[in-house]
């Protein structure tokens, strides 16, 4: 098995999830509670990666972070490096690609928190930020956990975007799924079977955990 690729995928998935929790949770909060009329446009943009072919997404990301683009130029100026075919570029693409997998479950969980509990907290004199921390977040915890798990799993298995933006550089951008592709191309079916089995078992475990969380098999706080 290509342990280097597995380790790279784990690092990529963990970093993506961490970034998505800091970016996606506030975005989900805004989507759940905002009354702006153009909210649906933001929702549509967030959901785009669900329906867009990964090649299309990857292509645009590649254009957007290329050395001649404003983002690429700024990055080169700040770090001296380049985003395409780097771990950082891959990370950026993964964040965009997995955005709906964090935002949607979290937004659904926020929307499921009884609005009166939030208002009750405000009327008790508790600030909006503290109300989020003490009422909304604990009650939406299963949804936040689901969002994090799904983003992690989705990033672990991504292929098209990685190929477009990251290429296939061992130790830098060669993720598990790319490695399997390589193994098959090299007719090394033994290795491909092993790695595939690993991804299959991993994906199943993650989904089982997610559904168990939603069904409260392991309740985060006791049900009433």
């Amino acid at each position: 098995m290509d342990y280097q690729a597995i380790w790279l995928s784990v690092r990529l998935a963990a970093s993506t999830t961490a970034i998505l929790l800091t970016v996606g949770v506030p975005l989900a909060y805004w989507i759940s509670f905002s009354r702006r009329r153009w909210k649906f446009l933001v929702e549509a943009v967030v959901a785009l990666p669900l329906v867009l072919p990964p090649t299309v997404l990857g292509f645009y990301v590649l254009l957007a972070i290329g050395p001649h683009s404003p983002v690429g130029a700024l990055y080169a100026k700040l770090t001296g490096g380049m985003l395409p075919f780097s771990f950082q570029g891959l990370l950026l693409a993964s964040v965009l690609y997995s955005l709906p997998f964090t935002v949607q479950p979290v937004a659904t969980a926020f929307a499921g928190v009884d609005r009166r509990l939030v208002e009750a907290s405000w009327c008790l004199g508790v600030s909006r930020a503290a109300t989020f921390r003490r009422v909304i977040a604990p009650l939406a915890a299963p949804g936040i956990a689901t969002g994090a798990i799904l983003s992690f799993a989705h990033t672990m298995g991504e292929f098209g975007v990685v190929l477009m933006v990251g290429g296939n550089i061992a130790g830098v951008t060669r993720t598990v799924s790319i490695s399997i592709y390589d193994q098959v191309q090299a007719l090394d079916y033994g290795a491909a079977t092993e790695t595939s089995l690993f991804l299959l078992a991993f994906s199943f475990a993650v989904l089982a955990a997610t559904y168990a969380l939603q069904r409260r098999v392991w309740a985060i706080w006791p049900a009433n």
Partner: peptide, 28 residues
């Protein structure tokens, strides 16, 4: 609402379901 200090008792009480009775009362 935070600045008015007007307590509000909701029709169905809106107690925080994840907190004990003691922590509900001590909430604010």
């Amino acid at each position: 609402p935070q600045k008015r200090r007007a307590g509000f008792l909701f029709q169905d009480y809106a107690l925080f379901p994840h907190l004990t009775v003691a922590r509900n009362i001590a909430f604010a």
